[in-house]
Nucleic acid binder design. Structure first.
Lengths: 328, 328
DNA sequence: ATCGAAACCGCAAACGTTTGCTGTTGATAA
DNA sequence: TTATCAACAGCAAACGTTTGCGGTTTCGAT
């Protein structure tokens, strides 16, 4: 049983397919009565326009591809929500691909996007991605691309990121305000650009306070963070403050600190994190944090991409989002 | 600058578009030399076949829609990974839509899938969804549908779920084995089918042990779980065991128990959870759990859907996955 | 020399929509 | 009466790919 088409409706209504097409789109050339009649028939026949045909005709399948380094990050869901909120309002669809922190997969995902004929690409880079050559193919085909969150700075593609440098700096300053003396700093993997920038901001702020002792840890995973944190608390029993770079790190650090709570003063340490915002309230005590707003990031990136799609070619634009403190 | 098409290549190679099409698909009718020549040209011209045209011609856009009740759940990422792993191997694309636990949005998402012309739908239901009427439109259009995880039992659509009843039962029995006497049971919202089934299994097992005291809590969110757990520990200071229905609940319960650790014996209670597996290791002490394998669920559901797509019409099939214990 | 089969390739229709152009009405104004 | 115009609707091409069918060449076998 084949799908109902414009032709079927036309036959049924005794008009041409063009009239049906126009009627269903409320084209002024079609009389009200005919419109009503056609719409009724379409309704009854359960007509649904063929997306592929529309895509072919209009040279746009109204879909954008989202390539993520991984899908397990705490940050991802809110980002996706932000993206879909603006996409849906423009009846665009979203195709999500994950690279699993694997550069090769990322390359493949780009190819998939191209093959699928997406109208634009939103991409957050793998921690193993150190250049953007794989984006060239897409660029040659004039597919708009926006980098978001995990990015590499350049002047070819647009970017939407948070001000990581400033975030790191603000967190250090927050701790200083709290009169701490010895800080354990837990970061993500150094291969990540955001790690480098947060670290840099943190260190630059620290350089103004030479008396403050700071120890840096770079953690590959939550589990790694847990181990490193446990060690650090034995090694630096006098540390009175903790900086946590991300939610992933937070899970591990918090677990380790609990473990050491009774013997050490883990629970009394001053803690500040950069977080998406869900987890901190469930730490004990709740952890104050600088909010890394994924939703906002998503909306802005999606909006920017849609702009580029409709007004191409656009010159690259870079948007840097600010962060805000949430103190418990 | 328009996209390169078969026609362009044909012109360049001095052959017809049909020959180009066949050559690029390694059709045996085309000589090796011509194939090589055409492939080279296609490569040089950066040819990428138009997905919409292919979709139109083949009446399949090789895409399936995944509708999720929410995207924040801990369970979601591994499920998506499972799904994409089988989809990718068949060059199918995935379109993800989220309903935000809103029935209306779910209805709308179904419509979006239909409009997009997906080849099949994978859907996990909202906690506010109590019937499947909104799936009828898709069913009439003969779009294969598979329900996964959050489902409603019926005999029209296929389902892939875990054995929630058994999971609840097994958890109770686990606690009994540990000689516990008084159990605090933390569940998700009762509107969820999986809550009902896990509860039922738990209670049925409990009914065989009338001496064991059990207290039930139904939590709408992690935060709610935290509150309820705090209260419960004050109200039942002698409770010596905890059952946790899900990761969301676990986050809250764990936070509350930490808070009461010093005054109460929270940390010494026997705990068992149903979990995706990531979080338990970061609880303190790590929480033993019955693994709710999202990855596996995803692969099986996706496989089932693809089967239905290729051999439709298929009669509904229901797959119930088992769970396994991971004990710390 | 003739036949047949294999190797190779093109024609044209089809998939379902959209839209520029054309053409037919009927009514109104001159 | 005729010119003008608005309202209405159809024709046919176009989007890019696939594929059934048919046609031509080549070549070996007879």
């Amino acid at each position: 049983m084949h799908r109902v088409t414009l032709k079927d409706i036309a036959q049924m209504a005794g008009v041409s397919t063009s009239t049906v097409s126009r009627a269903l789109k409320n084209h002024p050339d079609i009389s009200h009565t005919v419109k009503e009649k056609i719409k009724l028939i379409a309704e009854n026949l359960n007509f649904v326009p063929n997306a592929a045909a529309i895509g072919l005709r209009n040279k746009s399948i109204k879909t954008i591809g989202l390539i993520l380094p991984n899908i397990h990050s705490f940050f991802v869901p809110s980002m996706i929500e932000g993206i879909t909120s603006v996409l849906n309002s423009m009846q665009f669809k979203l195709m999500i691909l994950t690279s699993d922190e694997d550069y090769e997969k990322e390359v493949h995902n780009i190819a998939s996007c191209i093959d699928s004929g997406v109208d634009g690409i939103l991409i957050s880079l793998t921690k193993n991605t150190c250049d953007l050559n794989h984006l060239d193919k897409a660029a040659e085909l004039e597919i708009p691309i926006v980098l978001l969150d995990k990015s590499i700075h350049q002047n070819i593609f647009s970017e939407v990121v948070i001000d990581d440098y400033k975030a790191g700096k603000l967190c250090f300053e927050y701790l200083i305000d709290k009169q701490v003396k010895e800080i354990l700093g837990f970061f993500g993997p150094l291969s990540l650009n955001i790690t480098k920038e947060r670290l840099e901001g943190f260190q630059d702020a620290a350089s103004l306070h030479p008396k403050i002792k700071t120890y840096y840890y770079f953690c590959d995973s939550s589990l790694d963070a847990k181990d490193k944190c446990s060690e650090s608390m034995l090694e630096f029993p006098n540390a009175d403050a903790v900086f946590i770079m991300s939610d992933e790190v937070m899970v591990g650090v918090n677990a380790a600190m609990y473990k050491n709570k009774h013997e050490k003063n883990g629970c009394k340490m001053t803690r500040i994190a950069i977080s998406e915002g869900y987890l901190p309230q469930f730490m004990d005590p709740p952890i104050s944090y600088l909010k890394h707003d994924g939703y906002k990031l998503g909306t802005i990136a999606a909006q920017l991409l849609l702009d580029q799609i409709h007004t191409n070619p656009a010159k690259p634009e870079i948007k840097i989002l600010d962060t805000t403190f949430y103190i418990y």
